[in-house]
Computed example of a mutant assay.
Amino acid sequence: MNKRVLLVLGVLAIFVASTALSGCIGGNKTTPTTPGATATPGTTTPGTNTPSGALVPAVVSGNTITISGVKAESSDNQNSTSFDLEEGAYIVSYENKGSFGNILTATLETDDGSGMYIVSLWDTKGSDAMVVGGMMTPAGKYHLNVGNGGTYTVTITKPTSGDAAPVTLKGSKGESVAKAVNLNPGEVKISVKHDVGPTGTTSMSLYDLQGNTVASKWVSGSSSITDEDIGEITTAGTYIFSVSFSANTGGEATVSQ
C-alpha cells in the first residue's frame, strides 16, 4: 500500500504539471456551476464541440455512466455534469482522438474537492479499476474534468457479469487494462509476465465488487520476468481484474482457477 500511495502522490504532481501545460495552450480550469446536477441548462450535445463553460452530459444507463465530449486544444478545461458513485469497484475506460498527439489528461473529481481519481495522464486509450470508498476516492458526487482531449469518451461501469476464467490481459508499454471475470469459490491465481525491456514496475490486482482486494502483486525487473499471487474466492460472482504495465515494458497478465 505504501508504494501505491507514493505512486498516487507522484502522479498527482505530474497531473498538475500536465494541466498547467494545457493552460499554456489556452486551458484554464472551469468548475461545474451546478454540483449534483444530472442535467443542466448550458450542457452540450454529445459529439459537438463544447462551448467554453458548458457542461458535458454524464449519461447514466443501468450500471454504466458515459461521458462523450469534443474539446478544442485552445479551450478551457471541460467538466461534466455530476453523477453519484457509491462504494465499490468499477471499471473506468477511455478513448481519445484528435487532440495534441491524441492524448487525454482527465480526472474524476468529487464536487466538494475531497477526492480525485486519475483517468488518464497523457494516454490515448485504456481501462483500469477504480475503487470508491477511502481517503482518495470517497463515495459521493463526482464529475469528469478534462484538461487535454479531442473527441473523447469515458465510461464508468459497475459490471454485472464477466468472462469465465482463465482471462488473459495483454498490454503495451505504459498501458492499463481491466476486465470483469466470473469466478467460483476456491483458490484463484493472478500471474504476470513482462516482455524483455528496461527496468520497470507493473502492478496487477483482483477486486470483488465491494472494492476489497482479493489478490495483488507489484512486479519489477530488467528482463523477461514472471510473478504471481494467490487469493481465495469465498463467493461465486463477478470480480474485476486489472493490470498496469510500466512505462518501459508491456506483457500479459492472467487470472485463473
Rank of each mutant, 00 (worst) to 15 (best):
residue 183 L to S: 05
residue 119 V to H: 03
residue 223 S to Q: 15
residue 137 T to G: 01
residue 125 K to A: 11
residue 183 L to C: 12
residue 223 S to L: 09
residue 158 K to V: 04
residue 143 H to V: 09
residue 208 D to T: 01
residue 221 G to P: 00
residue 139 A to V: 11
residue 174 G to F: 13
residue 193 K to S: 04
residue 182 N to L: 03
residue 189 K to S: 15
residue 144 L to Q: 05
residue 128 D to E: 14
residue 199 T to Q: 14
residue 174 G to P: 07
residue 134 G to S: 07
residue 159 P to A: 06
residue 113 G to P: 03
residue 118 I to E: 03
residue 168 T to Y: 11
residue 150 G to M: 13
residue 210 Q to S: 15
residue 162 G to I: 10
residue 175 E to I: 15
residue 127 S to W: 03
residue 205 S to T: 15
residue 167 V to N: 08
residue 199 T to Y: 15
residue 224 S to N: 12
residue 193 K to E: 06
residue 115 G to A: 11
residue 122 W to N: 07
residue 186 G to E: 06
residue 168 T to A: 04
residue 184 N to H: 04
residue 214 V to M: 03
residue 175 E to M: 09
residue 131 V to E: 07
residue 138 P to E: 00
residue 164 A to W: 06
residue 172 S to I: 11
residue 205 S to D: 07
residue 133 G to H: 01
residue 224 S to Q: 12
residue 206 L to R: 00
residue 120 S to A: 14
residue 173 K to E: 02
residue 123 D to R: 02
residue 131 V to Y: 00
residue 119 V to E: 12
residue 188 V to D: 01
residue 202 T to E: 08
residue 167 V to F: 04
residue 140 G to C: 09
residue 151 T to E: 04
residue 212 N to P: 02
residue 171 G to F: 10
residue 204 M to D: 00
residue 158 K to P: 00
residue 226 T to V: 09
residue 215 A to L: 04
residue 200 G to S: 13
residue 182 N to I: 01
residue 225 I to V: 10
residue 129 A to H: 06
